[in-house]
Design a protein around this nucleic acid. Structure first.
Length: 256
DNA sequence: ATGGTGGCGCGGCCA
């Protein structure tokens, strides 16, 4: 039963020990990373190869960066949004055995109305247009990553305080809905989950200890693949480790 | 509270 996970690690170099430990403990078939924050030449391929993982990487200096680690051979399908001129490393699509995996680091957006917010919405528009064509060529598709959007108020620790704010605004949620309308489903919500399930907690003000978080890290399955997804959960454990990422891994199980 | 914490890379940006 393949296991696929997604984790915003907030620097692969700062988090290498955590990622290696988590891989060793869980042995997922594939792990999509976001915010690797490293140029491709400096990505720690060897450390992952020792655990049996091949890495595809799309990185840049200091910011952003995505990677897919796989126990089986992977073929790179795309390293950017086609037709969207973007110097930021946020997209990696790979073909695995019998499905395709699209790893995303969606722009944060900074604040509603800012230039970064406009960039986020334009980026999401281009993403949806592309995913529609990707689904035509790769009907069995998982779209995973840090979406920087909490899909609904149930994904927010304090919906009143976050109402209309970046990560929760109506326009961002409408863009996510447009993506889902291509036939993708948020697989976390296909299964019973603990209340107050989040995937990101701000480093500040003891947000994790108080569980003041958001669920912004998602695994979306195409209609062709969704029936094979048998489970999905968020693993909070690495968020309790010393010097953690501010995000927790999201894990999905697929039937063979 | 225009702070609070963390990463990158050494001042200020980004989250």
């Amino acid at each position: 039963m393949p296991t696929v996970a997604s984790w915003n690690v907030n620097s692969i170099r700062a988090r290498l020990d955590h990622v290696l430990r988590w891989l060793d403990e869980h042995r997922p078939d594939a792990l999509a990373l976001q915010e690797t924050k490293v140029q491709d030449d400096d990505f720690p391929h060897e450390a992952f190869a020792e655990l049996g993982y091949e890495c595809a990487v799309v990185g840049q200096k200091s910011y952003n960066g995505v990677a897919v680690l796989s126990r089986r051979p992977l073929d790179v399908l795309a390293t950017a949004l086609p037709g969207f001129d973007d110097p930021q490393a946020r997209v990696l699509a790979v073909a695995l055995d019998d499905f395709a995996l699209l790893d995303l680091y969606v722009p944060n957006g900074s604040a509603v109305g800012s230039d970064k917010y406009d960039y986020k919405l334009a980026w999401l528009e281009a993403l949806t247009a592309w995913v529609e064509t990707l689904l035509a060529s790769h009907p069995a598709l998982l779209v995973v990553g840090d979406f920087n959007i909490a899909p609904a108020d149930a994904d927010v620790h304090d919906p009143a305080a976050w109402q209309g704010k970046v990560l929760c605004s109506d326009a961002e949620r409408a863009h996510l809905e447009a993506l889902l309308a291509l036939g993708l489903s948020d697989v976390f919500r296909a299964f019973e989950q603990p209340p107050e399930s989040f995937s990101w907690w701000d480093y500040r003000q003891a947000a994790f200890r108080r569980n003041r978080g958001l669920r912004i890290d998602l695994i979306l399955a195409s209609s062709a693949l969704a029936p094979r997804v048998s489970a999905c959960h968020i693993d909070r454990t690495p968020r309790t480790w010393d010097k953690p990422s501010d995000h927790a891994p999201v894990v999905a199980e697929l039937q063979a």
